[in-house]
Nucleic acid binder design. Structure first.
Lengths: 228, 228
DNA sequence: CGAGGTATTGACGGCTCTCAAGTCTGGTGG
DNA sequence: CCACCAGACTTGAGAGCCGTCAATACCTCG
């Protein structure tokens, strides 16, 4: 019945670490009009919002990274996406969140009142259009992620590395903010398989792994071939 | 490198079967204001739109069913979703479609000019809100679908049957519009595994399969247990 | 009635999960 | 500064689920 590791849910979590407001007011770029939010700092593994909670805010990563996820009732966790600096998350526009979100490491995140967005969108169509575009892009991202989940372990890991390189990228070196467990839960694999696959890719000279959080892409063609 | 069946792509397809306009004008319900579209009939396996084509229309199923899918370059196909009567699809709000869509069997589909929607949304915020809600609901549906893809074959098939029963449902009997290959590509399995799993579920008295397209849910509790 | 596509069933192999050590790393305290 | 510890990561052996290949049954339609 359950075939994957159910230990996923019992994970270290910094409890009762209240968010700290850093500054009183801060503007959100990207939007066609001015939107303000409050920057909040989160600790490693701290919850940002939980599934089923009222969705009063949307979020924008300033520094660090966040993960959105759902948990199956047998304990398996599926990470739907990682959110890197500059990206918005917590969209969904029901009255409650349909997934949970946590800070990956230490992070600073701009918290924006949803109501103010809704009001702006009602008044200015460009804001509504912008929100629609954001949601549609997120939809597309999730659909692409689905394509990863039907592939072999090598293809998933290669795809993950290429995606991360693309999103954080300057050079061919990536400093992953997330653990092997996070990667595994993102790719629908186990940490052992992720680890083994990275070792294989390293043996194949496609990557090198100087430290476990740092990965250098040595042969993008090989990775792209796997990415299919 | 590739481990799943690559024969998926070579599938019968009714070629050169031009859509037929049935009627000149037809209203779209659900919308907060009047939106008109044109009902078009499609043949079995006929393409409705292709990935990369300009997204000039959105679609609403009147009768029959449609499937949205993407194809990997090794030929594997992932069906992102089935669209049943009453449901809209082809949202996405980029200028091109990011997936393809086909009619499953014979179907009638209302084709709506996207531009007219955009214009309406710009003029009336309720329309914009409605579109946003639709897209967000679709996002949520895809996220839930992702959760299916990380489960065992039994869990996936059970989840699929429950989803279909919920959406087409009146009673416990479902008449599936789609083939085993469609189900397999939706669940990230092979047709053999889908077939075997249905047989298992039948042996376990959870379902019965009078004909291969008709499935009767005999024990929803058992299915729900699997669905986790 | 025959033909082609569709579905089922079986045997086998491989990929990934599971369980279990072992190794490394980063942080803490002496 | 170093020893120590806990968590994270890696590596190994074995098992199980599902994919592959192949043969057979079914079903629709000409």
């Amino acid at each position: 019945m359950l075939m994957q590791n159910a230990r996923t849910i019992s994970r270290t979590r910094s409890v009762s670490n209240r968010p700290t407001v850093l500054d009183s007011s801060n503007q959100v770029e990207d939007f066609p009009v001015d939107v303000t939010g409050v920057p909040v700092s989160y600790a490693r593994n701290e919850e940002i919002f939980g599934e089923g909670e009222p969705a009063d805010y949307v979020y924008k990563v300033i520094s660090g990274a966040a993960r959105s996820y759902k948990v199956l009732n047998d304990g398996r966790r599926q990470i739907g996406g990682f959110h890197l600096p500059g990206e918005l998350f917590g969209l969904g526009f029901g009255d409650v969140h349909h997934c949970s979100a946590e800070s990956v490491g230490k992070s600073t995140i701009l918290v924006i009142k949803r109501k103010s967005l809704i009001a702006l969108a009602a008044a200015d169509y460009r804001v509504a259009q912008f929100l629609l575009a954001l949601t549609a892009r997120e939809l597309q991202r999730v659909q692409d992620h689905m394509l990863l989940l039907i592939r072999s372990a090598q293809e998933r890991v290669a795809g993950f590395l290429l995606e991360m390189a693309e999103r954080m990228a300057k050079a061919d070196a990536i400093d992953l903010p997330m653990s092997r467990q996070d990667i595994a839960d993102y790719l629908g694999l186990t940490i052992e398989t992720v680890s083994r696959t990275l070792t294989q890719l390293e043996s194949a000279a496609a990557i090198s792994v100087p430290t476990c959080r740092r990965i250098v892409l040595r042969n993008r063609n090989a990775l792209n071939r796997l990415h299919a």
